[in-house]
């Protein structure tokens, strides 16, 4: 797998930062390299839990383009805001709607526990173009999940007209500044809590931490600007600190990922899987990504010189 990449013999040869977004094929691939356990030249069991083939290569933040649009719910003052991604993140309109639709279903299926029946929903459509049929579909789906769509906020005239003709209460203009403090070097969003099995083909992106109650299967990916916490098995791709924060961690009850990324670092699991899995935490040290048993993690972090 690494044949096309230079394999540095010492850590110092690892490039500090090579821009390599993961969803942009035109850009160079992340340079991968095998990292050794600190103080030894071979990959072996050490104090760091199990042996990890970590790679200190680099990814910079993947641009949002080409990524699956992310539908989000946020609660505010007892209401639920349904946030649609802005139009500019979309590639083609046809796939955009079906992606959006699937995302909405997944979000509804995975968070049901967190709202009472008949919670009021405000749809924040941004500049997204929605026709009457699509608005009705969203409303029906929300009704099925025992939520009630009360009002639609949009900055597109067409969407506003479509909403009004379908009998929804609309607010055009951009009145949502107080509801949507737009990110200007902002703090992380509140954690996203999903209760579902994240299956192949699903991508969860969130500008904060992501907590998954369930398994993350191969073929799926989780991209979080904060930490990734998985109460289940991590078998897919996980990226923590996607905005560049190398102090973010990835933790899972069973860490068996396709690949993990933290900030600018990439690591893949060793060729030979361990005989037994236990809860583990992946974090970044000066030498790249390290994995340690969850039980040891806090202890170790305490006397780690930062």
């Amino acid at each position: 797998m690494t044949s096309e990449f230079p394999v540095p013999t010492s850590i110092s040869e690892i490039p500090a930062s090579v821009p390599a977004p993961m969803s942009e094929p035109s850009e160079p691939e992340p340079s991968e390299s095998e990292l050794k356990e600190p103080g030894s030249n071979s990959i072996a069991e050490t104090d760091f839990g199990r042996a990890v083939e970590a790679t200190g290569g680099a990814t910079t933040r993947a641009p949002e383009m080409g990524a699956v649009p992310q539908v989000r719910f946020r609660s505010e003052g007892g209401k639920l805001l349904l946030l649609l991604p802005p139009e500019k993140q979309i590639t083609t309109p046809a796939t955009a709607w079906s992606d959006l639709w699937q995302q909405l279903k997944q979000r509804l299926n995975s968070g049901e526990r967190f709202w009472q029946p008949n919670t009021v929903v405000y749809l924040i459509a941004h500049d997204r173009l929605l026709d009457g049929r699509q608005l009705q579909a969203i409303a029906d789906t929300l009704t099925e999940a025992k939520l009630s769509l009360r009002r639609i906020y949009t900055s597109r005239r067409q969407t506003a007209v479509a909403a009004a003709t379908n009998g929804f209460s609309v607010e055009q203009q951009i009145p949502i500044a107080h509801l949507m403090p737009e990110a200007v070097g902002s703090a992380l969003a509140e954690p996203l809590y999903v209760e579902t099995t994240v299956r192949s083909g699903v991508e969860i992106r969130h500008p904060g931490s992501v907590i998954v109650l369930g398994d993350v299967n191969p073929g799926s990916s989780i991209v979080a600007d904060g930490d990734v916490v998985i109460w289940g098995a991590l078998r897919g791709v996980a990226q923590a600190g996607a905005a560049g924060n190398a102090r973010c961690v990835i933790m899972a009850l069973r860490l068996d990922p396709t690949q993990i990324r933290i900030a600018d670092f990439v690591a893949r699991p060793p060729e030979t899987p361990p005989h037994q899995y236990y809860p583990e935490v992946a974090y970044v040290t000066a030498e790249g990504i390290r994995i340690i048993s969850a039980a040891e993690f806090s202890k170790d972090r305490l006397w780690m010189p930062e």
Binding site: Q102, K105, Q106, N109, R199, S200, G201, N217, P218, G219
Partner: peptide, 19 residues
Amino acid sequence: EVAAVRDADRVVGLLEAND
């Protein structure tokens, strides 16, 4: 087989999304 299971997993997700 890994490939068949991977695709089945995707399909399960799509079935869930399609009620």
